[in-house]
Simulated scan of single mutants.
Amino acid sequence: MVNVGVIGLGSMGNTHLAAYGSVPGCRVVAVADADEGRRTGRTGAGGNIEGQGSGGGFDFASVRAYADASELIADPEVHLVDVCLPTPLHARFAVAALRAGKHLMVEKPLARTAAEADTIVAAAEEASAGGQIAMCGMCMRFWPGWVWLKEAIDDGRFGRVLHARFRRVTSHPPGSFYADGDACGGALLDLHVHDTDFVRHAFGAPEAVFSRGYAKHTSRPDHVCTQYLFGDGGPVVTAEGGWAMHEGFGFEMQYAVNFERATAVFDIHQDPVLTLIDGEGKRAVDIPGGMGYQPELAYLIGCVERGEAPSTVTLADAANALRIVEAEGRSIASGRIEAL
């Protein structure tokens, strides 16, 4: 049994608590948050998608609750530390957990900057010699509609991809963290990184990016449109992400991928969520329900149990996604194509 301690009980911390409840082979034994209401479960946190951030009825009275995250990391009964703190704190506590001999889960983005992410990667590489497992929560690699898409791209069932468009937009989330561009990195880092990572996962590293965007609520880009450039013969790939829509807009998560012999469309608000259009007409694609968090954490627990380093997503993958996002930020600022 893998004993888990979750640090940071905002939206993602509570999302992870709910997901662990349906993952065999693990149990949450400790939580940590500086806010007493959160660490006792009296104060909840919402998320973009219905059911996210609720905690799923987690029994806070059944676990040890720490005000100081360092005390959770030092708890000898905790085997795996799950860091869901604000992004600027990821590197500090991730490295501390690894140096304390713990397995590690870090919510996305891996760190505030690619340079900070590299410190986590280096610490994890050193810890791996002792059998420690570390992973970053790039959940779209585990989201059912995105898993199907990656498989369709890899096995070529519809021919090669000609064009892919990803879209993830919402209104500005509440809270002081999301109002501070220096802390959260704007939607460019905190939200859009999901699609940047998946583009790299599906198509490989782009040669360059060309981005346009603007700030609205923070000092950083709150809306971005990026073209990922793959060179001659590569697909045309674009992604739009942002939290600059007016309050009440809701949350939209979509993709449209045009293969040589079919077009696949995902829309989180449609029924079915995934549709395929080809020579046989338009039909629903049968994919598992649910979000990506439970399969993501089940995969991590399985890796810990087997003593096997994660391969579906590595810390290096998460750090490289930050490098691309930072290039997108430079492209917005310069108005030019940014090479990678």
Rank of each mutant, 00 (worst) to 15 (best):
G289S: 10
H269P: 07
A262D: 05
L297N: 09
F266H: 14
H269S: 15
V273E: 14
I268M: 04
N258K: 07
P288D: 14
G302D: 10
L276C: 08
K282I: 02
Q294G: 03
V285Y: 06
H269T: 15
E305Y: 00
E296S: 13
G292V: 04
I287E: 13
V285C: 11
N258P: 00
A284R: 14
G290R: 03
L300I: 14
A264V: 11
I277Y: 01
E296W: 08
G279D: 15
E280Q: 10
Q294T: 12
G289Y: 04
M291S: 10
E296M: 15
L276R: 05
F259G: 08
I287A: 05
L297H: 12
N258D: 12
E296Y: 13
Q294Y: 01
T275V: 08
Q294R: 14
A284Y: 08
R283S: 07
L274T: 03
D278S: 02
Y299R: 07
E260I: 08
N258S: 09
G290D: 12
I277S: 11
L274E: 07
G289L: 05
G289T: 03
P295M: 00
R306V: 07
L276M: 07
V304L: 10
V304E: 13
Q294I: 05
P295Q: 00
G279E: 13
A262G: 03
L300C: 10
H269I: 04
C303G: 01
D286Q: 07
V273Y: 00
G281S: 11
A264P: 08
K282N: 09
T275S: 00
G281H: 11
D271N: 15
G281E: 09
G302W: 11
E296Q: 15
I301S: 12
